[in-house]
Design a protein around this nucleic acid. Structure first.
Lengths: 208, 208
DNA sequence: TATTTATTGTGATAACAAACACATAAATTT
DNA sequence: AAATTTATGTGTTTGTTATCACAATAAATA
């Protein structure tokens, strides 16, 4: 291992490794080679080894990786040892789906507040969280700090909601609205946008 | 414009341009410079021009781009002139959210069939589409050909569902399940996976 | 009509990421 | 204990993508 710039693409693959390892740990496996992992994931073994080598020498030559050890290492690299507090804005279908998901595979991501603009929804308790009025996003006091915001509101409101979330100190945002957010560059934004994905998908289908 | 390999990243940006142009057309604008578009999108003007130049000379030097023309050109490049038939598997929150979305901004993507394994849901009509039993995915006859499959089922079922969809002739799949699909390489797969995105997001938040 | 300004299109360069080749080392076999 | 097998870790090479510098050209101005 050498001090080196770590490619962003490498970071993006780590959660994929992490999940697969998790499954294999549960299945009771205890040693794993990069080739074997490669077969599960469709990612070349050299790619996997190079990715891991940015962070340390986790394997044993001639043997492979200790599954549990590697799992823990990646957990530590990704900062998944601690829990992360999430605020979710927009409690429609997507919002609920997200809550289901994070609640279900309790993954270290805790939804600590929820916001919506629909008066019929405000005040309800969803997944143990009280839904606040979206207009109160600026002021309303929350006990715990919010680490991450998830935006699932109407596209026209997304930008303002994002700004409020940043004011409240989030370090990153997942945006399901098809709206470009203009945020300080130290805020990481993940754009999850079905229509865009469909857009480029059909380019490839149409030009198969 | 020269015959050249078009970067995949270029294709992925086209839908972003497309949506922005759409908004601007609606607003009644009619000329647009790459610099101006750049300001809306946070993508460098040279990047935008280079991306467009792979497909033709759409602009006028000293002036900019004719908005409507450019919009139509991108529409044509992405194969968005025709409509695309979608089958959706899994009619839970995510499934419904997707139906809402595609129905709402009727975008050329038509959901023509839906499948679910829950007997309480099978037979219901959602957004004008009858929900079929997931077990019938293999056999059940659909009038129209299915171009794209969207998978929103339980992770353990995702792989089998994907295979059935491929057997039915889809050219691409959007997969919301955190399951790696092992499909022939001519099938384009888009993995939409919140937990993975959160995973790499917190790497960056934690190492800000 | 010559000059300046605005803006596109593109070849060349730089930055980034993936793939490869192989040195290293553990375990197993002969 | 030597040879073989298995598998990691990494410097180098190749490929891909973004950025830059600037030529080309249209419009506006002097």
């Amino acid at each position: 291992m050498k001090e080196q710039k770590i490619p962003k693409e490498t970071i993006k693959r780590l959660p994929i490794y992490y999940r697969c390892l998790n499954r294999l740990v549960v299945l009771g496996k205890d040693t794993l080679s990069s080739t074997e992992l490669s077969e599960y994931l469709g990612i070349k073994p050299t790619q996997i080894r190079k990715d891991l080598s940015y962070f340390g020498d986790f394997g044993t030559r001639g043997v492979g990786y200790d599954l549990r050890r590697l799992f823990k290492e990646i957990e530590s690299i990704l900062n998944l040892e601690r829990t992360w507090n999430i605020a979710i804005a927009g409690i429609s279908n997507i919002g609920c789906a997200i809550m289901d998901l994070l609640d279900f595979n309790h993954s270290g991501f805790n939804i600590v507040t929820a916001f919506d603009s629909n008066p019929n929804v405000v005040g309800n308790v969803v997944h143990g969280v009280t839904v606040h009025d979206l207009n109160d996003l600026k002021e309303c006091t929350v006990e715990e700090p919010i680490d991450i915001g998830i935006i699932a509101v109407d596209p026209v409101d997304a930008r303002e909601v994002a700004n409020c979330l940043v004011d409240r100190g989030v370090g990153g945002i997942i945006n399901f609205a098809p709206t470009l957010l203009n945020l300080p560059k130290e805020i990481e934004v993940v754009q999850m946008d079905l229509t865009s994905e469909l857009g480029w998908l059909v380019f490839f289908i149409g030009n198969n």
